[in-house]
């Protein structure tokens, strides 16, 4: 029974990972792509890992996949934040259709 639920989790996670990859191709600039990459890929991969845990139970790979969920949730937003900040500070403009950029207004003249 729990292996069936686990396979459902893995399927849902694969679907979200696929949407994240489509987002990486379709969205216009680096910031929007980061949005798709962090959100979809975090929950998609966590879902795959949790499904793996449900299938294999409290064995050595199951415990490791639970640990991976914790580290993934903690580190993926941090790396997205670092990439976005360094991209903006190295002068990459927002997409032409963007409506507002308060960060550039405030950091005018600062390098």
């Amino acid at each position: 029974m729990s292996s069936v639920i686990g396979i459902v989790f893995i399927a849902v996670g694969l679907a979200f990972d696929l949407f994240g990859c489509i987002g990486l191709v379709r969205l216009p600039d680096v910031y929007n792509r980061l949005q798709a990459a962090t959100k979809c890929v975090t929950l998609g991969t966590c879902s795959i890992l949790f499904g793996t845990f449900l299938v294999v139970g409290f064995t050595s790979p199951g415990i490791k996949s639970l640990l991976c969920i914790i580290f993934l949730v903690l580190t993926s937003p941090v790396s997205a934040h670092a990439i976005a900040r360094s991209a903006h500070r190295s002068g990459i403009k927002l997409w032409d259709g963007s409506v507002v950029d308060r960060y550039a207004e405030d950091k005018e003249g600062e390098i």
Partner: peptide, 26 residues
């Protein structure tokens, strides 16, 4: 919120007209 975020991004990504309106706010 994490679940809602995924549904939201998936909707925007597979919508044919790509309904985004991005910007940086304070």
């Amino acid at each position: 919120e994490c679940f809602k975020a995924n549904i939201d991004v998936a909707y925007r990504v597979i919508h044919p007209r790509l309904p985004i309106n991005p910007g940086i706010v304070k």
